[in-house]
Design a protein around this nucleic acid. Sequence first.
DNA 1: ACAATAATATCAGAGTTCTGACAATGAGCA
DNA 2: TGCTCATTGTCAGAACTCTGATATTATTGT
Lengths: 161, 161
Amino acid sequence: MSKAAKVLPDEGTGKRGPDGYLGYLLRQAANGYRHRVETSLRETGLTQPQFAALTMLDAYPEHSSADLARIALLTPQTMSTIMQNLENAALIRRHPHQEHGRKRRIELTDAGRQVLVRAKRLVYALETDLAEGFSEEEQRTVRRWLVAAGGRSLEGGAAKP
Amino acid sequence: MSKAAKVLPDEGTGKRGPDGYLGYLLRQAANGYRHRVETSLRETGLTQPQFAALTMLDAYPEHSSADLARIALLTPQTMSTIMQNLENAALIRRHPHQEHGRKRRIELTDAGRQVLVRAKRLVYALETDLAEGFSEEEQRTVRRWLVAAGGRSLEGGAAKP
DNA sequence: ACAATAATATCAGAGTTCTGACAATGAGCA
DNA sequence: TGCTCATTGTCAGAACTCTGATATTATTGT
């Protein structure tokens, strides 16, 4: 680079570094982490949202797509899309719900359970990386901030000043 | 707990609260914040990435789409898509670059500049919300964590210590 | 000067996420 | 009973983001 003395800030400095806007840093952090997760999950074919959905399904079985959407703070449409992709991949199965015509019961298939086991190992390794270099108290601060930053997002119109 | 004592965790507790996985909390925080930003930007018609792109374009003019992708830690394809949408909305203009046949110079239009002014006011209000309730030192911790969490995401294989 | 490499931009395809709109079921009320 | 409303699920459309592939231009090496 010889001409025009690059005014591009180096990575990790300026607005991009620890002096940047929190919202900007938040978006980049989530992007970067999702990228690492999906690179790590490549061999399983899962995406980060699919992994999250399978994990919830395993932890809270017998629940509908709308239930899971509420847990994950997503819209029902979004969760529906994820479920369709998981069903196409034969990782889940959906049956009509007895005593409730519209609801559908969701179940992991054997393939789904096997993939989930492998995926959990991969993702939990990255999870520990996220905490590395931060004390217990600092991690508490970070968790508290993350919950506050994303907490009340789909809560209807609770804009009550 | 008569028939099926709701095992759904309440919002803000369990894996969703301050005891949850950092990766999970990070995804939800970014989702929630983006949601708030776009709700706030509704009147301008901008999305969060479009706002970020316009801001960078304003701060570092005369740069190509690929340059901006590098700054924002996105792939060139992603930034290209955003630029196309901004161009369709007549918020930016692209001219052929002199002395560089392939590059294209990007410029905010008058409409783009006007929208950006309004959008900055709206977004910066939310930005201060993100810091509310956290001391200066806690904010430093959070920033440091966010940078570490998303930092080295697109660095091909540049393991250069 | 020519060939190889790198950078820029784009197309195609997929997955996630939103809004908006709609149909079908279940529950409550006049 | 019939009407209304909330819940559940889906379709359509848009934007963002990635990977992979391709074309064009610049730079570099021999």
